[in-house]
């Protein structure tokens, strides 16, 4: 037990705050039945959100971007539910939550710069390339007109 206290207090000088935090951070104090009820509620929430996101996918919300934003928002709510309750982040020592949040923060930075880069370029799509791709190289000896062109 003393080991745990040393570990807990070694982060900073905020003794009073850390001491005030419940030492049974693994929810020992909680009633197992109450805890099981929390998990059942979490599962119900996740299943309801799954039903909503499947239902929403059959509706057109103006643009495909709107549909994707709605689907990803619901997915993020589900991910938060899983990490807070199933992965115990809510009752865990904060260091684990900091690691998790940092991971997603850097993923966000990565994705943001990716899409900023692509978004700031000309829209390069195969449909835009039809003419140049067709006109550029003429295949050798495929058909007589092509052969004529090559001779010129």
């Amino acid at each position: 037990m003393s080991d745990a206290n040393i570990h807990g207090n070694s982060h900073s000088g905020t003794h009073s705050q850390l001491d005030a935090a419940p030492s049974g951070h693994h929810e020992h104090a909680h009633d197992p039945k109450a805890e099981a009820r929390v998990y059942i509620a979490t599962l119900s929430g996740l299943l309801i959100l799954t039903a909503i996101t499947v239902g929403a996918s059959y509706i057109q919300f103006g643009s495909s971007a709107a549909n994707i934003v709605i689907a990803l928002t619901i997915a993020t709510i589900k991910a938060v539910l899983v990490s807070l309750f199933f992965m115990h982040l809510l009752h865990e020592k904060p260091v684990n939550a900091i690691i998790a949040i940092a991971g997603f923060l850097f993923l966000g930075i990565f994705l943001m710069f990716d899409f900023l880069d692509v978004g700031s370029r000309a829209n390069v799509q195969p449909t835009n390339l039809h003419v140049p791709v067709a006109a550029a190289p003429v295949a050798p000896g495929v058909a007589t007109p092509a052969a004529d062109v090559r001779k010129e």
Binding site: S57, A71, I74, A75, K78, M87
Partner: peptide
């Protein structure tokens, strides 16, 4: 195991639900 579930939570809408 929860992480594997979490990844699927994002895979499912992106692959099956985009429209």
């Amino acid at each position: 195991w929860h992480l594997v579930d979490l990844i699927w939570i994002y895979l499912f809408p992106l692959y099956y639900l985009i429209s």
